[in-house]
């Protein structure tokens, strides 16, 4: 059998002599050279801006408790039609970020609405879509909610805030 010489392979070209080393490495006419691609996508921070608040309109619970559901698609359902008036509509957030990227949205389960007098009401929040594609760098997400107003709830304006998280995936 022909002899086998254990020889080590030359080191990869590094450092200041890179160009010369690369030239020497590539002069072997019978070496096979293949290209690979390296890639990365740099994204801009995604921003969520409220365009419309979550509104439940006016609810009369003087005679009985009322449940008002506002769906992300804008439809509403009032347990007692006569008790719900005014405009009820979902919250709308405008998202901006890197075009073509997909983002995930999360929202807290509940929000607490409070009145100036210190009374409170709970709202269960519903997210319209947990994932959205930023078409041309934009998207909209709706957040609905269900409010349960017990009978005899103290009248007044109730306000609250909730937190929406948006992130690339």
């Amino acid at each position: 059998m022909p002899r086998r010489f254990i020889t080590s392979c030359p080191r990869t070209c590094v450092g200041a002599a890179t160009v010369l080393c690369a030239l020497l490495a590539s002069t072997s006419a019978s070496a096979t050279a293949v290209a690979g691609a390296a890639s990365v996508t740099i994204v801009a921070p995604v921003i969520a801006r409220e365009e419309a608040p979550l509104a439940f309109g006016s609810i009369d619970s003087s005679s009985s408790g009322v449940v008002l559901t506002v769906n992300p698609d804008g439809t509403t359902r009032c347990s007692r039609a006569a008790s719900c008036t005014g405009r009820a509509s979902p919250a709308i957030f405008a998202l901006t970020g890197t075009a073509g990227e997909r983002v995930g949205v999360t929202v807290t389960d509940h929000a607490t609405l409070s009145s100036a007098a210190g009374d409170s009401l709970q709202v269960a929040l519903t997210l319209g879509s947990p994932q959205l594609d930023l078409i041309a760098g934009k998207a909209r997400v709706a957040i609905g909610g269900e409010i349960i107003v017990p009978a005899g709830q103290a009248p007044g304006g109730y306000h609250g805030a909730f937190h929406v998280d948006v992130d690339y995936q």
Partner: peptide, 28 residues
């Protein structure tokens, strides 16, 4: 395989970045 360490500059401009590298294979 090829491993790599990418240096991302402060406030690197948004976009899709790509580059090419060449590997050479030869008999010993």
């Amino acid at each position: 395989g090829i491993a790599g360490v990418l240096s991302v500059k402060a406030n690197q401009a948004e976009g899709a970045y790509a580059g090419q590298y060449v590997v050479s294979v030869d008999y010993q």
